[in-house]
């Protein structure tokens, strides 16, 4: 490869300096198999007067492009995740409600009508006779909504680990997304004490308790976490507290640091094993990783 061909691979080759976007595109999307003496090549190609001027340009370009990329990635991700998980829940709830309506209606038309989404799929696949065309059409919409919910579920599973790697590792992508959604964003989740995270999603029970006519709720949405659900009733409060504590730390690491820390998961597993060991292997601890 000769010198000018090498220079073609440099970030500065295709840059139009009057257009900030071209700098960012060049830095972000450019590739090269190996490095080269870019400062010298840039000077030879007439991009900069000398190496000092080249480094000045490089500094300005990297700071500007990195700032734009950071802002975009930070802004996009947690809101996208919140919308995705809310849309997923809406689609699923609506699909289930309509499936019930459908079963009731279809029951008036044929004796052996089934129920639920499964029956909606059977109906939707049918070539309708004239008297049932409306029912079959509705079944088609129900199936579409259920499929949409599945697609959104896949999207949540893809987004959550990039938005909140630690929270997703500890809670699973869907629960992680729900917590971010309930808090209204990753930043506000990161600022909540673990006691609040423990009862997120149990607001009705919490306010009933605060009004003085109910016991305090032990857990909110985190009840869906295996470590909570898989622990026997007497110890569920402890398990919920342990899980909420680690999730609070995970959310803070995700928001303020952003790197993945596998030790959080190990610490939580150990703590849950200790809590579940109180049952003495008696009962209720069969799906929480209490293998010993």
């Amino acid at each position: 490869m000769n010198e000018s061909e090498r220079a073609e691979a440099g970030w500065f080759a295709a840059v139009d300096r009057d257009e900030p976007d071209s700098v960012r595109r060049a830095l972000e999307n450019g590739r090269a198999d190996g490095p080269a003496d870019w400062p010298r090549l840039a000077v030879e190609a007439g991009f900069a007067a000398d190496e000092d001027a080249y480094y000045d340009s490089l500094h300005e370009a990297t700071v500007t492009a990195t700032r734009a990329a950071v802002t975009e990635r930070e802004r996009a991700d947690d809101r996208q995740l919140v919308h995705a998980v809310r849309a997923m829940d809406d689609c699923r709830r609506t699909a289930n409600e309509l499936a019930e309506r459908l079963a009731e209606w279809a029951g008036t038309l044929e004796a052996e009508a089934g129920t639920g989404l499964e029956y909606a799929r059977v109906l939707a696949a049918r070539d309708p006779e004239p008297h049932e065309s409306a029912v079959v059409s509705l079944a088609g919409r129900v199936v579409d909504l259920a499929d949409e919910a599945d697609d959104l579920h896949a999207l949540v599973e893809r987004l959550a680990p990039t938005v909140a790697p630690n929270l997703s590792a500890l809670a699973g992508p869907v629960l992680a997304a729900r917590l971010v959604s309930l808090a209204g964003g990753l930043e506000s989740l990161a600022k909540k004490p673990s006691g609040t995270i423990q009862v997120l999603g149990a607001e009705d029970a919490l306010f009933a308790h605060l009004r003085g006519h109910a016991p305090s709720p032990k857990h909110g949405i985190i009840f869906t976490h295996d470590a909570v659900r898989g622990t026997r009733r007497e110890d569920r409060g402890s398990a919920a507290r342990a899980v909420a504590g680690k999730l609070a730390i995970a959310a803070r690491v995700d928001h303020y640091a952003g790197d993945y820390r596998p030790e959080l998961e190990t610490e939580l597993t150990e703590r849950i094993e200790t809590i579940q060991a109180r049952a003495g292997g008696a009962d209720g601890a069969d799906d929480g990783g209490n293998d010993e």
Binding site: A9, G10, W11, A26, L27, E28, G30, R31, A32, D33, G34, P35, A36, D37, W38, P39, Y55, D56, L58, H59, T62, V63, T66, A69, V70, R73
Partner: peptide
């Protein structure tokens, strides 16, 4: 002024070899 920040994955050097010198 001589510090150049890059938002890149260190496991994929080919994505910044067009910026980092040899």
């Amino acid at each position: 002024p001589r510090l150049f920040p890059l938002l890149k994955d260190a496991r994929q050097p080919e994505t910044y070899a067009h910026v980092v010198e040899t």
